[in-house]
């Protein structure tokens, strides 16, 4: 097979232009089926969203360039600020609680014990349970008068337990608890993989040096887990800011506007009301927030590495 023999070193060196062209063709032929769909339905919309946010366009009119008008309108709209505040509130609760729960569970599961596989399976299961079922069950558990959560609180001596999803002060905490319960198993698996990649020799060395358990956790586990923690942090953050379905099904943004979040606003304005330009402006803000937070986290991570 003279031809394939000749092609072999070329794959490494990219020397011969004919070989490069051939590889390019082969490479693209693999990627193309997926790329067509990806380009038309993901890449193009991402770019279009950017342009649309500077246009006025709805179902009845033609697109028209309006500069920053959408953003001005957005900043003057009170609902936008409420949604921004609620999204931040959700993220501020969801991110640390999910990460702490996931890390705690992963540390327990990292013990060499019998039956760990069962616990891991059970703790992971909420993550893949359908969201509607999750929301419906938790709504019932949080029932203010006869739900198990409040019955438990009363039994523990809480005289006036919260109204959860019926109260504008407690609806967001209820959503956060539900989402932490659902998501922690997923990040627990990632943490567990990170923990298992730490060489046992590190712990042995620390022990020989007389480090106690807390010192080993602080000086071995946490530093070795830093890349994992960083990855989890970015993933949880992106997930938090785009929260949507759980809130739609559990509270639909209510009571009042107590749990209305940004992505819900995008859906209402863009798809239900057909204000494409205005909705895209809100999307751009959502995207910029996620981007800024992610870049900030990257910077902090970089500085720590040094």
């Amino acid at each position: 097979m003279a031809l394939t023999d000749a092609s072999r070193p070329a794959l490494r060196r990219h020397g011969d232009p004919r070989q490069v062209r051939r590889n390019t063709l082969i490479g693209w032929s693999f990627i193309l089926p997926n790329f067509l769909g990806f380009a038309a339905l993901t890449l193009l919309p991402v770019v279009a969203a950017l342009g649309l946010s500077f246009m006025k366009w709805n179902s009845y009119s033609d697109p028209e360039w309006v500069g920053l008008a959408n953003f001005e309108r957005m900043l003057g709209n009170e609902t936008f600020w409420v949604a921004l505040k609620n999204t931040t509130y959700y993220a501020a609760g969801h991110i640390p609680l999910t990460m702490a729960a996931a890390l705690g569970l992963a540390i327990l599961l990292n013990e060499k014990l019998r039956g760990v596989g069962f616990f891991r399976t059970a703790l992971f299961f909420p993550y893949i349970t359908s969201l509607v079922a999750v929301a419906v069950v938790w709504n019932m558990l949080f029932n203010p008068t006869a739900g198990p959560v409040n019955l438990l609180l009363e039994a523990l001596g809480v005289a006036d337990p919260p109204g959860w999803t019926t109260s504008s002060d407690w609806a967001m905490p209820a959503v956060i608890i539900t989402s932490v319960w659902r998501d922690m198993g997923y990040y627990m698996v990632i943490y567990l993989a990170g923990l298992q990649a730490i060489p046992p020799e590190y712990y042995e060395a620390a022990q020989v040096d007389g480090a106690n358990a807390w010192q080993r956790f602080r000086n071995v586990t946490l530093p070795c887990l830093r890349p994992t923690t960083f990855l989890v942090l970015v993933m949880v953050t992106v997930g938090s800011f785009k929260v949507f379905d759980l809130i739609v099904v559990m509270t639909d943004g209510g009571p009042g506007r107590a749990t209305t979040v940004l992505s819900q606003l995008i859906y209402r304005e863009g798809i239900r009301e057909g204000r494409f330009g205005y909705a895209s402006a809100i999307s751009l803000v959502l995207f910029l927030i996620v981007l800024t937070v992610t870049v900030l986290q990257f910077k902090v991570q970089e500085r720590r590495e040094r």
Partner: peptide
């Protein structure tokens, strides 16, 4: 990394 909500309208 781009939230899906950011491009669901287009």
């Amino acid at each position: 990394a781009v939230p899906w909500q950011a491009y669901m309208v287009p």
